[in-house]
Design a protein around this nucleic acid. Structure first.
Length: 413
DNA sequence: TCTGGGGTCCTAGGACCC
DNA sequence: TCTGGGGTCCTAGGACCC
C-alpha cells in the first residue's frame, strides 16, 4: 500500500483545518506523461531507415521525402535550407549537435548541415496524439489534456501500486502507437512535470514530497514550469540559480522584485507546493491565425499583397470559428515589424460575428490605429470573447484599409 | 537572411456606472 | 471647492508554454 509523507514545513501551519487540507493535497498521486521527441518520433515511424540519424522537423515549403528508383527515401538536407523557418522539433541525435526546438533553421544548419530535414505534418501528429490519449484512457479516467504531446493524470483513486501502474500506462501507449513516453509521478502537477523530464527518453520518475531537497532543489530554476527566460535572468541577478536557492530566498524579497502574486508563487513552487486540480474540460478563449512573410512588406508599396494576406487570414479565422461553431465579439490585429517589435489592436463589437466580411471590417478599425514605423514582418488576426451564439449581422461597406493607407504620408524605413 | 504559430494568464490604466 | 470607493469592461503589452 502507498504511504504518504508530509512536507517538512507542516509546522508552519497552525490550524487543524489547514493541516487536513495539506494532507489531502499531498496525498494526491498525480502523473505527468510526456511523449518523447513526439513529432520526430512519429516521422521515424514512417521513415524507420532514418533511425539513429540527426533529423530535424520544421520549416515551410520543405518537400516531403521522395522515393528514388532503388526504393530509398531521399530527404532534404538541413544545410540546403533557405528561409525564415524554425526547428519544430529534432531527434535526440540532432539535439546532441545543438539543434533544439525554436532555433532558426538557418542557424541550426550551421551546427548540423548534414542533418536531415523533414516538413511538419500536423495531421499525422494529431492522429498519433489521439491514439496515445485513447490508450491512456483505457487505464486512467481522470485526464487533463495539455496539448498535442502531453497530459496530466490523477492516479489517486486507482487501487494499484505506483510503479506497476505507470508501467501499464507506458505499455498501453507503446502498444497503441509504437512510441515511448516519459512519466513523472508526485503529489502535484508542478513536481510531476519536473519529474517527467528527469529520465528522458522512456523514463519513469516517482517522487515523494520528502525527496524535494535531494532531487528537485539542485535543479536550475528554469526547470519549473512558469519560470521562463526573463524570470530566470532576473533571479540569476539576485544570486538565485537553483530551485534550492529559490526556496531559501525570503518571500518578501521575491515579492519586492516580482510582484505580490508571482513572488508568492515562486516561493511556493520552490517548496513543491501546488494544489491546482486537473482541468478536465476547457472551453477555448480565443482563435487566431498569423503569418510571417517571406520578405518584410511595406505598408504602401506592398498594399496589394497586404490586402490579399489580411483577407486570407480573416477567411481562415472565420472558417475556424465556423468549424467549432463559435462567434466572436472581439477582433484583434497583431503586427510584428522588421525590428521585431509587436503591436496589438483590439476592437469589441456590439454583436458576436463569424463571417470573414465582418472580421475584415473590424480589422480595418484596428489597422487605422497602428503607427507604421517600419516594414512589416508578420500579420495576425485573433478572435476572442467567443460565444456559441450568433449576433445580428450588420451590413456595412468594406473599407479597403490598405487602399486608403497608400494615400497617407508615412515615415517608413 | 538569426528568431514560427497557436494558445493562456496576468497586469495596469482608463472609462463608466452606482 | 473638494471629496469617495467598488465593480466591470475594454485595451495594450508582456511572460510563458507547447
Amino acid at each position: 500500500m502507498r504511504r504518504y509523507t508530509l512536507p517538512v514545513s507542516l509546522d508552519r501551519f497552525e490550524t487543524k483545518l489547514l493541516k487536513d487540507l495539506l494532507v489531502a493535497i499531498t496525498a494526491r498521486r498525480i502523473a505527468h506523461l510526456d511523449m518523447d521527441a513526439f513529432f520526430a518520433s512519429v516521422e521515424l515511424l514512417r521513415y524507420p531507415q532514418l533511425k539513429g540519424k540527426p533529423v530535424v522537423v520544421g520549416g515551410r515549403r520543405v518537400p516531403a521525402p521522395q522515393l528514388n528508383a532503388e526504393g530509398e527515401y531521399i530527404c532534404g538536407r538541413l544545410g540546403d535550407y533557405v528561409g525564415r523557418g524554425v526547428v519544430t522539433t529534432s531527434t535526440y541525435e540532432a539535439r546532441a549537435l545543438g539543434v533544439f526546438s525554436g532555433m532558426g533553421l538557418m542557424q541550426s544548419a550551421r551546427l548540423a548541415p548534414d542533418a536531415l530535414l523533414l516538413p511538419a505534418d500536423f495531421e499525422a501528429y494529431k492522429h498519433h496524439s489521439r491514439l496515445f490519449k485513447q490508450a491512456v484512457a483505457t487505464v486512467v479516467n481522470v485526464i487533463e489534456d495539455r496539448g498535442i504531446d502531453e497530459i496530466y493524470l490523477d492516479l489517486t483513486d486507482i487501487d494499484e501500486d505506483t510503479e506497476p501502474l505507470a508501467q501499464r500506462i507506458k505499455a498501453a501507449v507503446r502498444d497503441a502507437t509504437g512510441l515511448s513516453c516519459s512519466i513523472g509521478i508526485s503529489p502535484n502537477k508542478l513536481l510531476s512535470k519536473i519529474c517527467s523530464d528527469l529520465d528522458k527518453p522512456d523514463g519513469l520518475t516517482i517522487l515523494q514530497i520528502g525527496d524535494l531537497p535531494d532531487r528537485i532543489w539542485p535543479l536550475p530554476v528554469s526547470k519549473v514550469n512558469g519560470i521562463g527566460p526573463k524570470a530566470t535572468r532576473k533571479l540569476e541577478q539576485l544570486g538565485i540559480a537553483t530551485i534550492g536557492e529559490l526556496a531559501q530566498a525570503s518571500e518578501q524579497v521575491l515579492q519586492q522584485h516580482f510582484g505580490t502574486h508571482y513572488g508568492q508563487w515562486l516561493h511556493q513552487a520552490a517548496h513543491g507546493i501546488d494544489d491546482r486540480p486537473l482541468v478536465i474540460e476547457r472551453q477555448p478563449k480565443s482563435l487566431s491565425r498569423e503569418t510571417t512573410f517571406e520578405r518584410n512588406l511595406h505598408v504602401r508599396h506592398d498594399r496589394a499583397e497586404l490586402t490579399r494576406i489580411t483577407d486570407s487570414l480573416c477567411q481562415r479565422v472565420s472558417q475556424d470559428l465556423a468549424t467549432k461553431s463559435f462567434w466572436c465579439r472581439t477582433v484583434g490585429l497583431k503586427v510584428k515589424f522588421a525590428d521585431f517589435t509587436v503591436v496589438t489592436r483590439d476592437v469589441s463589437l456590439p454583436q458576436p460575428v463569424q463571417s470573414a466580411q465582418a472580421l475584415r471590417q473590424a480589422l480595418s478599425e484596428c489597422l487605422k490605429r497602428v503607427q507604421w514605423h517600419d516594414r512589416i514582418r508578420l500579420l495576425g488576426v485573433r478572435a476572442s470573447a467567443l460565444s456559441d451564439q450568433p449576433g445580428v449581422i450588420q451590413q456595412n461597406p468594406q473599407l479597403g484599409f490598405w487602399e486608403a493607407e497608400s494615400d497617407r504620408k508615412l515615415e517608413t524605413k
